[in-house]
Structure formats: structure tokens, C-alpha cells
Amino acid sequence: MDPSKLFCLFCGCSVPNHNDTFREDEHYFLIRRPHFASEENFSDKITIQTMNCPNCHKVSIDIVGVGSQFPNRITHFNPISLAKAYPDYIPQTIRSDYEEAHAILNLSPKASATLSRRCLQGMIRDFWGISKARLVDEIDALKDIVDPSTKKVLDALRKLGNIGAHPEKDINLIVDIEPNEAHLLLKFIELLMQKWYIERHDNKQLLQDILDLDKDKQNQRRSKNS
């Protein structure tokens, strides 16, 4: 958590930073053995960040590693991931791949990227009704449907997911994906969820609400004229 920009991982609300909502506790491994301790030893520590949301009253806990042994490692203890809760009209398999990709984001960024790739393929097949032998062919089939920049990013996500899904020709070549890079892919998946599924649902709902309103008003006119 960034103490300057606190928001609840459960309900998404902004949380003010004071002693009743946010606390940090630091733990050093050699704190009880000062004769072994040095400035270098004290650079390795675990920080437990606890936040109590005044809106939903749920407690978020992050474990943050600092120092050479835990470079920039953050573990979400509660909740275990930052995955958003999506409505049931998005297929369960797509939501499951997305949630699992979030859950393993820090443990295995490569595996997370692979699941984002799988999530993308599921969305193309379900939303657009395009199903081919290879994902690259499915993305090419979208070239006249989505804008060119979106197609480029779709293809980039596919190739990044391939890093985790397929070994390199040279088995000694290691190409890593960092957690922040895998998180970018998940942010793009969330963008597609919004632009494809949620906006379509909201548009349909708006049109239906207007039709229902018109039907109600016409019934009122007929009842008054009868």
C-alpha cells in the first residue's frame, strides 16, 4: 500500500490515513542479537501494513519485503489479490482465469501472463464469436473490428503470454517477466472487460429502460383515453 494514496482493496473506496485506519509494523530478523547486527543486517526487514476501511469495515493486510533478501516483494495477505469482482454475465471461465492470474501475480509473473493470454483468447471466442486454431489468427480476424492500436496491444499481450507458455528455442535463454509487467497485462484485460462486456450490457440496459418507459407511458395514455 502507498500510505499517501490509500484505497480499500475490498470496496475500492478512498481511505484517510490516520492511526485508526492505517498502521505499519517493522520486523528485523537480528533485532534480538545486537552483537551480530550491522547496518547491512538492519536493511533487510519485513513490514506489515494493516488498513481498516471505515466504509466496509474490512481489514486489508500487505506484507512488504525490504532489502537485498526481499527486493520489492509485496504479498497481499488479505485479500490475496487485487482482482476486481466482475458480474455474472461475463463467463465464469474468463473470470476464473483473470482471478487466478491476479492471485499468482507476485509468485509467478510468467504464469500470470500466460493466464492473461488465455483469458484474452476466451474473451475473443466468447464476445466476438471468433474461434481458430491459433490465437494469432483470431486476433488477425479482429483487424476490421477493433482500432489498429488495440489490435497491436492484443498481439503484444499474446506474445508476452507466449513467454510463459512456450520455452525458448535456446533453453539456456531466460526471458523474465516482472510482476509490474504482468500487472500491465491484467490492467489491459480489465480495460477489455469494461469496453466489451460491461459497456455492451449497460447500453442494452439503457435501451431497454427507454423502451420500458415508452411502453409504460403509452399504457397510461390508453388508460386515460378509454
Rank of each mutant, 00 (worst) to 15 (best):
M1P: 04
L9W: 04
F10R: 12
C11Q: 09
C13L: 11
C13G: 14
F22K: 13
D25E: 15
D25N: 14
E26P: 01
H27R: 14
H27F: 06
Y28R: 05
Y28T: 06
F29H: 12
F29S: 09
L30E: 13
R33G: 05
R33P: 03
R33V: 13
P34L: 11
F36V: 10
A37N: 04
E40D: 13
N41S: 15
N41L: 06
F42S: 06
D44Q: 05
I48G: 01
C53T: 05
P54V: 08
C56E: 04
H57F: 02
I63H: 04
G65F: 10
G67R: 01
S68W: 10
F70C: 02
P71S: 05
R73S: 10
T75R: 13
I80K: 12
S81P: 08
S81I: 10
L82Y: 06
K84F: 01
P91W: 05
P91G: 08
T93K: 15
I94A: 02
S96L: 12
D97N: 04
Y98M: 10
Y98P: 06
A101N: 07
H102E: 15
I104D: 08
I104V: 15
N106M: 12
L107V: 13
S112F: 06
A113P: 03
T114P: 03
S116I: 07
R117F: 02
R117G: 00
L120F: 00
L120A: 02
I124Q: 01
D126E: 11
D126A: 09
F127Y: 08
W128F: 15
S131L: 09
L135Y: 00
L135R: 00
E138T: 02
D140H: 02
L142D: 05
D144A: 15
V146W: 00
V146L: 13
D147A: 14
K151D: 00
K151V: 01
V153S: 11
A156W: 03
L157I: 12
K159Q: 12
L160E: 01
N162Q: 08
G164M: 08
K169H: 07
I171Q: 05
I171T: 08
N172F: 12
L173M: 06
V175N: 09
D176Y: 08
I177M: 03
E178Q: 14
E181H: 05
A182H: 09
A182K: 04
L186V: 04
K187M: 14
L191N: 10
L192Y: 00
K195T: 07
E199W: 08
Q205V: 09
L206F: 13
L207F: 10
D209H: 12
D214H: 13
K217P: 00
Q218V: 12
Q220M: 13
Q220T: 09
R222P: 00
S223N: 14
S223F: 02
K224C: 01
S226T: 13
